[in-house]
Design a protein around this nucleic acid. Structure first.
Length: 420
RNA sequence: GGGGAGGUGGCUGAGUGGCCGAAAGCACCCGCCUGCUAAGCGGGUAGGGGGUGUAAAGCUCCCUCGAGGGUUCGAAUCCCUCCCUUCCCGCCA
């Protein structure tokens, strides 16, 4: 979230950012409630201070009249504090609903049409024959099964079968190996159900509850991304600055209701209720976060390059960026069969927006006050669409799919999917 | 799931109604001492918020001893509920 102090001092900056993001921001309401809260707070504190003083006096004098007066004061203080607390809760709730501001380098725009391609790697491959889609090939090769998944779970679920499942596992291994051994990330295996506080820390709550699966009768939610448990790993902590940046990589399934995506990407292995993802997370300082964000994006891109997949890196415009993000890049891999780019990674930096919610701080030096950390994350990469791009890019005219060179060590001798 | 013990600052840990936001130790910082290092000596070091400052500093007040509620003039300390840790038993991958 944005600090109350920041909103007090820069209401116009906050209003403008919200407007360009297409998000509502209760700035005026906050300023109003803030006034109210401070008045109550001040009054409550005055009574309390007086009460504390007189209470000490009573300890000495044991004066019964004073005791009666103190009893009344205690009542007054209690009601006034309760009033102040109620207003503060209202204020806190409003603060959680204010979108983040964005970095000055973010392109201004309303829709995805105004996103900007900042990099392109490789070119669209010319296969020399009409490319087929991954779902067509996947079902023909028996490595993807959507029909049976519908039977046991519903739409937007899938089975990967045989070499399909193996391909997914190989990709996870490759990504984890590269990120831990070469990019310096520490692997985390994280809880995949988290509580409301954690969800609030990463800003999935309160605004986006309808995107999440919730466990009945418990304060537990299925994670929509490992970003949630991993970013919250250091919640309520004060870190030493010389330990930063902290770099974590975590493989996990991710669950999303895909509310609001009805009718979109219903065909194929693209937009699933459950999917695997290798997620990169950094916790860093204010000074280094933009730089670390670029490096994290490069780490994700490295995987695409090793896989030999053509992709574009896009800078998201304000309107397409989202509530919590300070700056965001999407990596879109080319899928020849679908004849379109698929978003396989989304890399974001949050400034101190998440850290403030999760209360993650660091101390820059002895005797200096703690500061809120900056958090960064990005997929490195999301599995289904990466698999799609691989299948469609490495397909052959005979309907079989070649295993990319880097994956061969992980495929247990399988070099060609479909050869039996 | 049943029963016992417990949750205090960066860490260890004392504190059973006011003198406690908290002894002591460790760690760390500053200074002194020392040829250097170690030791020693002196001082300092929790977080959040309000008010007052142009800002910082400072001053001042309030809150925080797992969370919430209660008793009391007054709660780290007493009572209740919940969460968590740990031990024993039960169950089970």
């Amino acid at each position: 979230m944005l600090s109350l102090e920041f909103i007090r001092k820069n209401p116009d900056v906050v209003r403008r950012a919200a407007e360009l993001k297409g998000e509502p921001a209760p700035v005026d309401e906050i300023l109003e409630v803030d006034q109210k809260w401070r008045a109550h707070q001040h009054k409550a504190e005055e009574i309390k201070a007086q009460q504390n003083d007189l209470s000490k006096e009573f300890a000495r004098t044991r004066d019964e009249a004073l005791k009666t007066r103190l009893r009344e004061m205690a009542e007054t203080a209690k009601t006034e504090l309760a009033l102040a607390d109620a207003v503060k809760r209202e204020l806190d709730d409003l603060l959680l609903r204010v979108p983040n501001i964005f970095h000055e380098s973010v392109p201004i725009g309303e829709t995805e049409a105004e996103n900007v391609v900042i990099r392109e790697w490789g070119t669209k491959p010319d296969l020399g024959f009409p490319p087929r889609t991954h779902y067509d090939l996947g079902e023909a090769l028996g490595i993807m099964d959507f029909e049976r998944a519908v039977k046991i779970a519903g739409s937007r679920f899938a089975f990967l079968v045989g070499d399909g499942a193996r391909l997914e596992r190989a990709l996870v291994q490759l990504m984890l190996d590269v990120h831990t051994r070469e990019h310096g990330y520490t692997e985390l295996w994280a809880p995949m159900l988290v509580n409301s506080a954690a969800m609030t820390g990463t800003a999935n709550l309160p605004k986006f509850a309808d995107m999440l699966f919730k466990v009945e009768d418990r304060d537990l939610w299925l994670i929509p991304t490992a970003e949630v448990p991993v970013t919250n790993f250091h919640r309520e902590e004060i870190l030493d600055a010389d330990r930063l940046p902290l770099k974590y990589v975590s493989y996990s399934p991710s669950w999303r209701t895909e509310a609001g995506a009805a009718g979109k990407d219903t065909r194929g292995f693209i937009r699933m209720h459950q999917f695997s993802k290798v997620e990169l997370v950094k916790v860093t300082t204010a000074e280094t976060s933009l730089d670390e964000f670029e490096k994290l994006t490069a780490d994700a891109e490295d995987i695409l390059q090793r896989l030999g997949l053509h992709y574009q890196a896009m800078a998201m415009c304000t309107g397409d960026m989202g509530f919590a993000q300070y700056k965001k890049y999407d990596l879109n891999a080319w899928a020849p069969g679908l004849d379109r780019y698929l978003e396989v990674s989304s890399c974001s930096t949050f400034n101190d927006f998440q850290a403030m919610r999760a209360n993650i701080r660091y101390r820059a030096g002895r005797g200096t006050p703690p500061r809120f950390a900056h958090t960064i994350n990005g997929s490195g990469l999301a599995l289904p669409r990466t698999i799609d791009a691989i299948i469609e890019t490495y397909q052959r005219s005979d309907g079989m799919v070649a295993v990319p060179e880097v994956l061969k060590p992980y495929m247990g001798g399988v070099e060609l999917i479909g050869a039996r």
